[in-house]
Amino acid sequence: MNSGNGSSPGRSRWRGRAADAALAAVLAAAIAFQAYGIASTWGGGYWWPGAAAGAAVGVIALLRRRGRAVAAAAGLTVAAASVPVSWWFGLPAEPGPAAALALAVLTASAVGRLPARPACAVAAGGLAVVGIAALPELGSSSGMPVVWLNLVLWLGGLAAGLGPRLLAARRRRAAERVRRDERLAVARELHDVVAHHITGIVIEAQAGRIEAPEGPGGGRSRDSFAAIEAEGAEALAAMRRVVGLLREEDGASLSSPAERLTDLVERFERRGGPPVRLHRPEDEPAWPPEIAAAVHRVVQESLTNVARHAANAGEVTVRVTRDGEELTVEVADDAPGPPPRPRPGGYGLVGMRERVRALGGTLEAGPRGGGGWSVVAVLPLADRRSP
């Protein structure tokens, strides 16, 4: 199993190289066929400008994976520039078959992989090149076959790019439906089973407070029952918030990320934790649901670690900042001296790191230079599902 999974990227690279080799062979054949046809009908050295343009766009197409948007823009620029040059010097119509084929490959690559706006821009640019090439041939029949060939190849590239894109969008919608159904199923279980038992615990704790005997022992019992009741009521409220989150169609929560962070910090302080300074963005953050959940989880687990291992800290700082398309979450304490035991081995830290990595981010935890411990998570806000 491990060897198979490890060789998958290698197989993918091999297929990509094989496809590029096949494309290079097809482009070379197209350039040779174009040069032979022009030399046979036009004679002289009329064949080499078209061959040079086709080779230039072909090389760009072969390098498209290094930057699809830049490659598409460069290919369109070369093809568009070849049209007035060929018309001005009385050369055969451009883009020729080789350049048109390379442009179709660039169009398919951009439309299939780039975000919507640059993909539409590349598709529109390809159509504009076809239109520019048709202008010098209006009223003439000699160059129109090349224009029609350009149009057909552009349509083929557009279709080749749209097919995988639409298929990927359909798969994402199907996956979203499955996740939504799973969330609703979990919400029903939490509401019907877990919440029912927690409610029973709260009721039993209330009854215990009433029935506790008088005297010092009874007072301690009433305090214990009161603590159980408070914790149960808080757990029930948190359960209801989770159920509400799971039942939201778009994954949005019933309260904003900022409100949930404030509530988390207040509960931490009510339970006897060190004072917390919370710094968050001024405006209301519009984070994706999975990012908001990850931020909440990182802060929650970090504060739990502070309560367990740094109860002597004078202050805890929770800072959430945004820099472009990255969100940084930092939780730091100022507990003096080394931590009482190594913290990286805990499952909480492992769970945080796995959650952050699953979203394409990074998490670092360790001692601070001036004393204490810090956890820093960097989460990308950009769409991670884009191909």
Rank of each mutant, 00 (worst) to 15 (best):
R277Q: 10
G360V: 12
V59T: 11
G251W: 04
W287H: 00
D283Q: 13
Y347G: 01
G54P: 07
V276Q: 05
I38W: 01
S8K: 15
L349K: 03
F33P: 06
T321M: 10
L166E: 12
M144A: 07
P275G: 06
G370A: 12
L63M: 14
L261Q: 05
P118D: 08
G96R: 03
R220I: 08
L23T: 15
L155P: 03
R11M: 07
P115T: 07
G337N: 06
G251F: 04
S253A: 14
P342H: 10
V376I: 08
R117N: 13
A335Y: 02
D181P: 04
G90Q: 06
A110I: 03
F225K: 08
A28M: 15
R222M: 08
L278G: 06
A32N: 11
A32P: 14
T321W: 09
G345N: 01
A121P: 00
A293N: 04
R260E: 13
S86T: 12
V306K: 02
A21D: 10
G351F: 05
R247Q: 13
P342M: 07
V178P: 04
S7H: 11
V178W: 10
R172D: 12
G126A: 02
A160P: 03
A226H: 13
A110N: 04
H197Y: 15
A358R: 15
G50A: 12
V26L: 15
E137L: 07
A286H: 07
L149W: 03
Y36E: 09
G161I: 05
A159M: 05
S86P: 04
A310K: 05
G219M: 12
M239P: 01
S221G: 13
S40H: 07
A29L: 13
A310W: 01
D283C: 10
F225Q: 12
D334H: 08
A53R: 00
A310P: 01
Y36V: 12
G372E: 04
M144K: 03
G126P: 02
G232C: 07
A313K: 00
L155K: 00
V329Q: 05
G217C: 06
W87H: 09
A53W: 03
L153I: 01
Y36A: 13
V178I: 11
H279P: 00
N305I: 00
G156T: 03
L254I: 12
D283H: 10
G126Q: 01
G156F: 02
